[in-house]
Design a protein around this nucleic acid. Structure first.
Length: 512
RNA sequence: CGGCCGUUAGCUCAGCUGGUAGAGCAGUUGGCUUUUAACCAAUUUGUCGAAGGUUCAAAUCCUUCACGGCCGACCA
């Protein structure tokens, strides 16, 4: 109760006073639940928006709508429902009746209206208020109607207010929903099966990251929130589910930023008897399909805004064209032509020179005994000089073995794996590879990760004996991929931060 | 975790080198009654993020803290 009193103010007190009267004088304690909403604003607009005033008068169609009052203009109320907005009209006797019953309607109140649809002189549709009911009294005033809610902290902490007020926010999360269901449809149409694997894991695997730790009382064991579903999905491929996918949350106990939330949504999918090139083709097809189906265009527009919110730069990402495919080495050479290409091409043979280049471009080496090999240096150099330059949709291939502990080694070059990552606008969106299905090789690589963990790298992988056992039963040749859903939604919705595409992003709780 | 910036009415924001706290919207009262950020008249609203300090005097200067934003670090 004390918490309520804290931000109580005159405006809220006035509305509470109105509600007190309503409770006494209206049925259902002021919260009726018998209004039968039959129509949506957007449907009415779509069906009749083009008709003339006279055509509508002839029709005399009755509609029953409900929604939140977003604005009052003279005798008009602007109602907003989940589909959109439409006006309702209260003639003078109705206004008097409303005032007598409920002490005027406030912006934010939720009402039901039934009546004949008309068109105003200015060309807007409205439903005449023949029957009307206050369904829910809103006790708190909404943000200002023109500027809306722009305080970012409040947008995230009170997303419900943001959603009431800001159409852009509603659009973003509708697009997010469409992207997820679009991916789901795309894969199920191609014979993939959706599965759910453990979020609580005893051995957190499938990625290198710090996990959240928890404890299971009945089993009396430590457990971890998963950092990736990968090893479980591949167990299912061993079991014979040859095409599987999972769309769900991963949890990583790491910092927050414009691109990171401690829990984030990934799709991972695995296909037996396919390789990483098949997945690049699939990815290209899927993203192109999504762009067209969800955004209505294979070209995605992004903007850069200044502090005043004015657009200073426009970017267009073309998913209609074939995506560029280039190896990590070639990408470094292409985007940093001043570096010695011969060294980049022979990272192991000219290791010391590679290290010098790394230092030159600003790679920070780890302290202590944790020694990097040529593959790690190459990858770091790539991230430093090339990654942010990958503007249009681009696959980077030929990731070094050293940074790919779960990927299959390339047949012709043991230094690299059959792996790609996918970039748009300088951001990594996806990571896929032909899976390592050699049980003995996998066991050896786990051993190396364990050694790195013992050396102090707390993000190195655990040894997962059961996963090795599964591989020993036989994983068919398989390719798998993960796509960061949040970042994909950021791209499609032109959102500068991941908090804009997560309904309830994590924040530090407010102090009392 | 580090650097920079921010926090003033329910919301969006002014408030200069210290001198009685402001506007628009929302609200209230009345008018108008086919409006489009409706309009006209009158009017109400504050722990200036918190706590200390300097000063005759602090929204304003200083210190600490809280929360947020941006940029780094870690990563997807």
């Amino acid at each position: 109760m004390t918490e309520q009193v804290k931000d109580e103010n005159k405006l809220i007190a006035e509305r509470r006073g109105k509600l007190d009267n309503i409770r006494e004088n209206c049925p259902a304690n002021g919260h009726p639940n018998d209004f039968n909403r039959e129509h949506y604003a957007a449907d009415i607009q779509a069906e009749h928006g083009e008709k003339t005033k006279e055509e509508l008068e002839e029709l005399q169609v009755t509609y029953a709508i409900a929604g939140r009052i977003m604005a009052k203009r003279g005798p008009f109320f602007v109602l907003q429902d989940m589909s959109g907005r439409i006006q309702s009209y209260a003639e003078k006797t109705v206004q008097k009746d409303i005032k007598a019953r409920w002490g005027l309607l406030d912006i934010g109140d939720i009402i039901g209206v039934k009546g004949i649809l008309h068109k105003s002189g200015k060309g807007d549709l409205y439903v005449n208020m023949e029957e009307y009911s206050l369904l829910t009294k809103s006790l708190r005033p909404l943000p200002e109607k023109f500027h809306g809610l722009s305080d970012q902290e409040m947008k995230y902490r009170q997303r419900y207010v943001d959603l009431i007020i800001n159409e852009k926010t509603r659009d973003t999360f509708q697009i997010r929903s469409q992207i997820v269901s679009g991916i789901r449809n795309f894969l199920t149409e191609r014979g993939f099966m959706e599965v759910e694997t453990p979020m609580l894991q005893v051995i957190p695997g499938g990625a290198t990251a710090k996990p959240f730790e928890t404890f299971h009382n009945a089993l009396d064991i430590d457990m971890f929130l998963r950092i990736a579903p990968e090893l479980y999905l591949k167990r299912l491929v061993v079991g014979g589910f040859e095409k599987v996918f999972e769309i769900n949350r991963n949890f990583r106990n790491e910092g927050l930023s414009t691109r990171h939330n401690p829990e984030f949504t990934m799709i991972e999918f695995y296909q037996a008897y396919a390789d990483y090139k098949d997945l690049m083709n699939l990815t290209e097809d899927m993203l192109r399909t999504l762009a067209v189906n969800v955004m209505g265009n294979s070209v995605i527009r992004n903007t850069v805004k200044n502090a005043e919110g004015e657009v200073t730069e426009e970017k267009f990402y073309d998913f209609g064209q074939p995506f560029e495919r280039i190896s990590m080495m070639d990408a470094v050479i292409k985007h940093a032509p001043h570096l010695d290409a011969d060294v980049i091409k022979d990272p192991e043979g000219r290791f010391e020179e590679l290290r010098a280049i790394a230092k030159q471009v600003g790679v920070k080496e780890p302290e202590g005994k944790n020694v990097w090999g040529a593959g790690k240096y190459l990858c770091e150099i790539f991230e430093e000089v090339a990654e942010h330059m990958l503007d249009q949709p681009t696959f980077i291939t030929e990731y070094p073995w050293e940074v790919s502990p779960l990927a299959r080694r390339n047949d012709n070059n043991a230094f690299i794996t059959d792996r790609f990552e996918f970039f748009v606008g300088g951001r990594e969106l996806a990571n896929g590879f032909s899976e390592l299905n050699d049980a003995e090789d996998q066991a050896a690589r786990f051993q190396q990760q364990v050694a790195e963990k013992d050396a102090g790298d707390d993000e190195a992988m655990h040894f997962d004996q059961d996963y090795i056992t599964a591989l020993e039963y036989g994983l068919p040749p398989t390719a798998g991929e993960g796509i960061g859903i949040d970042r994909l939604v950021m791209l499609f919705t032109d959102s500068p931060t991941i908090k804009d595409v997560i309904l309830f992003p994590h924040m530090r709780p407010q102090a009392d």
